[in-house]
Nucleic acid binder design. Sequence first.
RNA 1: CGGGGUAUAGCGUAGUCCGGUUAGCGCGCCUGCUUUGGGAGCAGGAGGUCGCAGGUUCGAAUCCUGCUACCCCGACCA
Length: 489
Amino acid sequence: MAKELTSRAENYSQWYNDLVIKSDLAENSSVRGSMVIKPYGFAIWEKMQAALDKMFKETGHQNAYFPLLIPKSFFSKEASHVEGFAKECAVVTHYRLKTDENGKVVVDEDAKLEEELIIRPTSEAIIWDTYKNWIQSYRDLPLLINQWANVVRWEMRTRLFLRTTEFLWQEGHTAHSTREEAIEEAELILDIYADFAEKWIGVPVLKGLKSPNERFAGAVETYCIEALMQDGKALQSGTSHFLGQNFAKAFDVKYVTKENKLEYVWATSWGVSTRLMGALVMAHSDDNGLVLPPKLAPIQVVIVPIYRKPEQMEAIRNKVDVITSNLKARNISVKFDDRDTFKPGYKFAEWELKGVPVRLAIGPRDLENETVEVARRDTLEKEVLQMEDIAEKIEHLLEKIQDNIFQKAFSFRDNSTFYVDTWDEFKIQVEKGGFMWAHWDGTPETEQKIKDETKATIRVIPFDGKGEAGKCVFTGKPSERRVVFARAY
RNA sequence: CGGGGUAUAGCGUAGUCCGGUUAGCGCGCCUGCUUUGGGAGCAGGAGGUCGCAGGUUCGAAUCCUGCUACCCCGACCA
């Protein structure tokens, strides 16, 4: 294992890359733009999945699975949807390989598909084509389906977790009988996402609407949660779309009302992806490595023995067995690092790099005094505690850590949030990073011009935005409320 | 897709300009002994089609031609 991590101050983006690789979350694969998620990283993703999946099910959603390959013609049905994704679709054109005269494997040109298949960049098309058959009556509604899947978007430039060619996500697709109910659904999901981000990942988020420029292709309204990373850039962390009747009309999905009238259904779609892993890494970690929120850490407590002789190790092991079973009884995941091939100092550094929230060290001194050294990853503080009720103390400590990293991220965001009223201020602040609450005249043209000049976009039109009126920071035209600008990932 | 760069062991690199013994070093890996409260030390060892394909030459990691892949900066994006 390499010893040094690039520091955040030195090169934030290098730090992020180093950290993801060195902490064993993921690595680049031999496939352009696609990563291998390694067991340690995947364990975190599985915990995210489990928590979200539970929340979806508790709110009446069911999981299903739809095909990876989508006939090309399906994409031409919703015009703005195609336009949004056309430039980044992988296309399957043949179904067979053969060996040529030089012994090389080549595509068999005789095996050309009648109609090309698109590897899903998102599943609206195939799902709405299916829903057409599932929905006839108001009794079939609402239809609340979620899918855990992989999708492919042929991005120009990729970064581990933040943007990869193939990524894992969940996508919810719901159908409703009224506009109001669909909007309610989109908002409900947004609340779930925000809750998950804050209570599990420990990342505070702003909730609100996207501006028209940033809206999902085919949506009437896009809701989002937006987080702020340590380098002052924003990360869109989840989106929930109110699709109106766009997809119902494109795929001809109608239902009969109680009054025996034929109506198009109302729709939503919503998703979060492995990008959340990127948010997790960038929000809390430091120059020593990952800092994982206890609720998502694959290993919550690691125990490092300190010993010289085999007899000491045995005495420690006996003590550790007791602690371990007490912790497990409280649903706390523990690892006893009894590898005899590494010294304690090495192990301390390694588990720090991997972000394990709590580390216990037990040596001869502790056995003698009935104590244990407890180190917390978030603050790097160490203290020696009495062994009595240790499991309970650790359980409380984990809660405290979960809370502390959220608070820390919250005050970071607070200190990186600015009210900006003039264009000069805007241009200066944008270089420093952070969320900028500014007035905007509401036109896509102005947003585009601001983006062209500063690379900053409207990240979110927040729900809790103060209703105060003002003048657009760029054009000086009247504005009803402030919106949040930032440079984004 | 535009601009720039790189390709040598699992990883990071020296050597390339100016061709010449057996391609060197660090990390990691293997074996042994000593070590263990913040990234151990010593000794020994294994590991290389020098990105691919041609060419020049007595001789190519090094020079020439073509190809490929990857990285960085833009435009695009969850």
